[in-house]
Structure formats: structure tokens, C-alpha cells
Design a protein around this nucleic acid. Structure first.
Lengths: 148, 148
DNA sequence: TATTTCTCTTGCAATATGCAAGCATATGGC
DNA sequence: GCCATATGCTTGCATATTGCAAGAGAAATA
């Protein structure tokens, strides 16, 4: 048995988003892949929140189905797999960062430095461009290492 | 028995957000309260997604605990309850609308009109201000009706 | 006073999650 | 080539969450 998944949760934009990545584990995977340069199954598994293996496999598969992640055999080592963020994933960066700025403001135990929200407010476009460039760098690095 | 809730899901901004409203029903409640002018239990219950009564009560209670919703006896009718969006909720508007624009772009069955994403891209600040004004209007209306 | 509206609560079956173990494929050392 | 290891999953099972139907309690309405 398996996945009915986003069974007709299309149409309404909020519902589409909720059905596509609207659960805590998808959120954290998006964070890891968009902001922390994580790409492999074990990268995600080692995040401090401690996702379990079956849930991780399920969420990666859903995000791949939704064209948010692009699953490829790791060019550096064929026993490994890379999940690359697609353009569709990258286009969530502004909202994701906006949410993080919100958390930084309202979570009294936030660990985010003051400078993060400050930089974003000073120049959001530049801040997002910086994160996009980081993503490019991580992906390029993987393929350049493979050629050696 | 009841709610341990966001047990130490603080610190990391993404994790804080995921723990606070990171599930599909919270998403939809936020949509209803921020964008559709819904305020009462039965308003939320009547949304087309069909949330069940126990889940709705649970999520409203969590969002109230998180200071995202402000629960008050309805000034128009004391047997009813209003859930008003707080400043903390309103501050999610930009990200929520950003996510909706994303869905509008990527959901091939989107029901959102082209004009929505277009207006946002042309002037995001103005678009958000418009939604904020709508929220003010809905809340003011409730209290003005109560005085009659 | 009786009925209806409205916001929940409760009981129970179905589904999803978390955990530990195991499996499959590829790699790397001999 | 052969075996140990690394990596990405799958499976089984206990526990937790959800969904559904019914109903309780407080206030409005007739």
C-alpha cells in the first residue's frame, strides 16, 4: 500500500502549499536543503531534530514527486544519493526566510543572531540572492569534486 | 491527558515556526483568519476542507497558546466565540501571501486569478497593506455591530 | 419553558509516526 | 574476486494522532 498524497488539495493556493510541504518534517528538510547545504539522506538524518528513517524516506519521496527535490545518484559516489533543490524549491526561499525572521522576532529563546533579521530588513533582495548563491556553490562543488 | 506541545522546539527559527503552525490545519486556519475574514469556530468548521471538530478545537487552542489568535466571547452574541488574529499572526501575512503566489505559479490547477500574483509582484507592500486593512475592517465591524 | 445555536468533549476505529531491525546496492581493501 | 563497510532505504510493531459520530453544556430565541 502507499500514497494517495495530495489528493485534490489543489486549487486554493494555501491548501496547495499545505498539501505539498505543510508539515513539520518537510519544513525542516526545506531548511536543510535551502539553507544548510544538506543534500544526502544521511545529511538530513543527522539533523538535530532526529527524524526517523521511514518518515525521512517518505517525505523525500513526496518532495521529489512535487518536483521540489531532484533525486540523483551522487556523482562522487554511486552508493549515495543527492537531493538537489529545484527552482520550485528555491522560489520558496523568500517566504522561508520571511518566516525565519518572524520566528527570530517572536521566539524568546531564538538562537538566531540579531544580525540575521537586521540584514534581511536592510536589504531583503540582497539577502535572498546571497542564499541562492550559496545553493549554487554547494551544488557546483559536488559536481566538481566528482571530476577528480 | 493533554498537550506537551512545542516541547523545546524553540531556538532554531525554522523549527520554531514548524512547531508553532507547521501543519496543514494551522495553515488553513491562518488563511481563514488572515485572508477570508473568518473569526468564529463555525466559520472555520465550514471551510471546504472539512476539518473535524476535535482537531479544530485542538488547533485553535494551540494557536491561542502561541499568541497567534486572541480568543474572546463574541461581543455580538455571548454564546459565540471570536478568534482574532494578533499582531504576531498579522506579521505572517507577507510570508503567507508569498507562499500563495508561489502556489499560484506552480499549481497547474490553481484557482487563483492571474491578477493576484500580478498585483503582488507589482507592489507587494501595497498588497499586504490592503489585506491588513481588510482585517481591521472585519474586526471593527464585529464590535460596531455589537453596539447596536 | 422548550427549542435551537454554538462551542466544544468523548469514545472508538483508522491512520500516521517512532523505533529497532534488517535488506540491497555500491564501495573499498585485500 | 571476496568480504567488510557505507549508504539508502523497507519492514514490523508499539504508540500517538486523526477522523468520525454522538452528545454535553451554555446562551439565545421562540
Amino acid at each position: 500500500m502507499a500514497k494517495p498524497r495530495t489528493l485534490n488539495w489543489q486549487g486554493c493556493p494555501t491548501r496547495y502549499a499545505a498539501g505539498t510541504f505543510g508539515d513539520k518534517w518537510c519544513f525542516l528538510i526545506l531548511r536543510d536543503v535551502l539553507l544548510h547545504g544538506k543534500r544526502t539522506y544521511s545529511d538530513f538524518l543527522n539533523s538535530p531534530e532526529g527524524i526517523s528513517t521511514n518518515i525521512l524516506a517518505d517525505r523525500l519521496s513526496r518532495l521529489e514527486d512535487a518536483a521540489i527535490l531532484d533525486r540523483q545518484v551522487d556523482p562522487r559516489k554511486a552508493s549515495r544519493v543527492c537531493y538537489f533543490p529545484t527552482r520550485k524549491a528555491r522560489d520558496l526561499l523568500p517566504s522561508l526566510i520571511g518566516i525565519m525572521v518572524w520566528s527570530t522576532q517572536y521566539d524568546e529563546h531564538t538562537e538566531a543572531p540579531e544580525s540575521f533579521a537586521k540584514a534581511y530588513r536592510a536589504d531583503p533582495v540582497e539577502t535572498i540572492a546571497w542564499y541562492e548563491a550559496q545553493i549554487d556553490r554547494v551544488d557546483a562543488e559536488i559536481f566538481s569534486e566528482a571530476e577528480q
